[in-house]
Design a binder for these strands. Structure first.
Length: 708
DNA sequence: CTGGGGAGGGGGCCC
DNA sequence: GGGGCCCCCTCCCCA
């Protein structure tokens, strides 16, 4: 009996880094829990289960399982058989893995065993002597992780062995397992169904063509990285506003979302998970729906994509980098078509989102993967298809060894089933020293997942049903949908190229400057930088340009075309970026000010905080000044003001536009784990604030005075 | 502050 | 279906 083929792995989740000296005595089993998971405790503060904090797609791999290693001769008799895992090699028991000691095992020792095939969502597998857990089906937020052993079940069935009488069981992937006592999984079905229904409806809604203040032939998907990310998020969020309310529902996320992870050394080990510190949270006054956002957006998506060296650089950045986190008031912002009245706005009913964010602000020189570290010198690069030892100086030849190249298993795109030339993931363990990306697809409904078919399955026998390229039909045409951002493409190849956006794969490397690109065309275009070639000439002034786009922009100078107009002063610009910069001038001119004090505020939230905390015109002070300052600081980091026009142009009045954006503020604050505004005796509802689109106009200020 | 150019990224179309 | 080409969009830099 040899090692079984590894199941197809699309996403990899590594343990939290654990260090004996920096974990403040926290047992390894508790300190290594990935951030997308949470522990469930009993009344004695013992871990009884592992819960998913967010949607986890099939094909996700956790592990490896860690524990004390014994062989048959050295295994102590005191070890509980239920905590022993058998690892096989060449048909023989190779070693025994003891997971009974939380100081020597990792979080996986807490994953309970499903008592039936129908209930499990994880299966254990062995790869090169290491045991991993693979998700067999989508795990929705709040669901318990349950690992299943088909062979053990069969054995138990034969032996009529009660669950409590577990012996050393054998897992389906040649591992032997007997975990904690079998338990019935927690009943989150109602909540899961709710989320599923919402997600299904989200997906079925079509994007509304956005009105824009500038001529754009394309939809809003063609935006910058950060805006893309935020757009998707905002899109889902706005869509959700039209969904059936879920307020008042105490779903499992509320119960289990560890707003304070137990890996936090400041947290008391073993303390029950408290989703929110209701004593300090701004949102204690908010409907529950807003208070239950998982923190994955901040906690985990960006970091999980970065190698350790970049994690540091990322975490040193402000948590609320506006470009990264906050959707601009942009023309790329879709609005629900039915948003015609205030009642349509359900700003506190927001679906669970797991959109990954990519820290573009890391800079060109700091890609989220260790390109430079793995890329050999140009002279050492073997020419593709050439014999060994040959080198190439052709900068346009894709580097076989550059970032995420298929030649390197730790970077292979087989995780996403991309045909990068290297084929499938080698059947060997992933080096643990390499932090790897974990990419979460957007939450998908179960129905969708059943409808789509896989682009490729490495192991049909596994039954995992990995679906890297979900298919759907639109107007009779097959569309390939990105499982991460739900964007659809008419051609699979386009989707595969698109997936590089999420994966970070950049297979085309410039051998001169080592910069990597997602597409060959980009590399070819980039190469002109080095050659100085400018093949595109303006027929009017004979000026040459390296790209047609830049030539086209240039031609506007001759034609006098200024397609980008400011809606306030009607100034026109030839480039959109100029209009954006111009708008900020207006914003500065319209800073909010409280009639009682000289400070001005960029955002309505700031003014609200001021008035709530220390404005003499308001009497419901309840928050310390330091807290207010912090809140103001955080609010100011939200760059709400980039593009305030489109919402208004779409018929939204100031009030509704303010509602929309302020809700997003709240959400972002929640995601950031910021406990900011103490609402005191009066509930915080931004929606009751004076109508404004971030800017309090003069007449509204007067009204404000009257109210005060 | 405005304006112009350079550069990179995403995606559609076509072979 | 894959790859190449092209276009559009965005941002940055600098005068």
């Amino acid at each position: 009996m040899g090692t079984q083929p590894v199941e197809e792995v699309t996403y990899i989740v590594n343990d939290q880094l654990w260090d004996l000296h920096t974990s403040f005595g926290l047992p390894r089993a508790r300190a290594t829990l990935p951030q997308n998971l949470a522990f469930q405790y009993n009344s004695s503060n013992e871990v009884i289960a592992v819960i998913s904090r967010e949607y986890i797609p099939p094909g996700t791999r956790f592990g490896p399982l860690v524990g004390k290693i014994y062989n048959k001769e050295t295994v102590p008799k005191t070890v509980k058989p239920g905590c022993l895992w058998m690892v096989f090699s060449q048909g023989c028991t190779k070693k025994l893995l003891d997971t009974s000691d939380p100081h020597h095992s990792n979080w996986m020792c807490y994953v309970r065993r499903a008592h039936s095939c129908q209930l499990h969502n994880l299966s254990a597998g062995q790869t090169d002597g290491a045991i991993y857990f693979h998700t067999q089906r989508p795990i929705l937020a709040g669901s318990e992780l349950l690992v299943w052993d088909s062979r053990a079940d069969r054995a138990q069935s034969k032996d009529q062995c009660a669950p409590s009488e577990q012996k050393v069981n054998v897992l389906s992937a040649c591992c032997t397992f007997s975990g904690l006592q079998q338990q019935t999984p927690m009943n989150h079905s109602t909540y899961d169904q709710k989320i599923t229904a919402m997600q299904t409806k989200n997906k079925e809604e079509e994007k509304k063509p956005s009105l824009q203040d500038k001529p754009r032939k394309r939809d809003s998907s063609q935006t910058a990285d950060s805006r893309n990310t935020l757009f998707s998020e905002a899109q889902l969020q706005v869509k959700t506003w039209n969904e059936e309310p879920v307020s008042g529902q105490t779903g499992p996320l509320d119960q289990n979302d560890p707003g304070q992870s137990d890996i936090n050394p400041n947290c008391q080990a073993g303390a029950p998970i408290c989703p929110h510190n209701t004593a300090t949270s701004l949102h204690k006054d908010l409907p529950l729906a807003l208070s239950r956002f998982p923190s994955s957006f901040l906690l985990y998506s960006p970091l999980s994509h970065l190698s350790q060296q970049y994690q540091h650089s990322y975490t040193s950045l402000p948590v609320h980098c506006p470009r990264l986190l906050f959707p601009s008031y942009s023309s790329a912002f879709p609005l629900p078509t039915s948003l015609n009245s205030l009642s349509d706005l359900k700003p506190l009913e927001i679906s669970v989102l797991t959109t990954p964010a990519y820290p573009k602000h890391l800079g060109e020189g700091h890609p989220p993967y260790t390109y430079g570290a793995v890329s050999p010198s140009p002279t050492s690069l073997p020419k593709q298809g050439s014999s060994e030892g040959q080198t190439t100086n052709d900068p346009l030849i894709p580097s076989a060894t550059c970032a995420m190249s298929s030649s390197r298993p730790e970077f292979t795109m087989s995780h996403l089933s991309l045909p990068t030339g290297g084929g499938s993931l080698p059947n060997r363990a992933m080096p643990q020293a390499q932090p790897r990306a974990a990419f979460w697809p957007a939450p998908q409904s179960k129905s969708l997942l059943h409808e789509v078919r896989p682009g490729k399955q490495l192991d049909q026998s596994s039954g995992a049903g990995i679906l890297p390229h979900p298919l759907k039909k639109e107007n009779g045409k097959i569309k390939y949908e990105c499982s991460i951002c739900a964007k659809s493409f008419g051609q699979l190849s386009n989707l595969k190229v698109h997936l590089r956006v999420h994966s970070g794969e950049r297979p085309f490397q410039c051998h001169i400057c080592k910069k990597c690109f997602t597409q060959l065309a980009h590399l070819q275009k980039h190469h002109l930088v080095h050659t100085g070639e400018k093949p595109h000439q303006c027929l009017v002034c004979n000026k040459c340009f390296s790209s047609t786009s830049n030539l086209k922009t240039h031609l506007r100078l001759h034609s006098g075309e200024r397609p980008y107009q400011c809606w306030l002063c009607h100034t026109r610009f030839t480039q959109y970026i100029h209009l954006k910069l111009h708008r900020r001038l207006h914003e500065r001119q319209q800073l909010l000010c409280c009639p009682s004090s000289p400070p001005t505020y960029l955002h309505h939230a700031n003014l609200e905080v001021h008035q709530r905390g220390n404005c003499p015109l308001f009497t419901y002070h309840s928050c310390p000044t330091a807290k207010l300052c912090e809140t103001n600081s955080m609010c100011n980091q939200f760059d709400l003001s980039q593009d305030p026009t489109p919402l208004l142009e779409r018929g939204l009045d100031h009030h509704r536009a303010a509602l929309l954006m302020e809700t997003l503020i709240l959400r972002k604050m929640e995601l950031g784990g910021i406990n900011t505004v103490c609402s005191g005796s009066r509930p915080v509802h931004f929606s009751r604030m004076a109508p404004s689109c971030f800017f309090l106009k003069q007449e509204e200020q007067q009204r404000h005075i009257q109210l005060a």
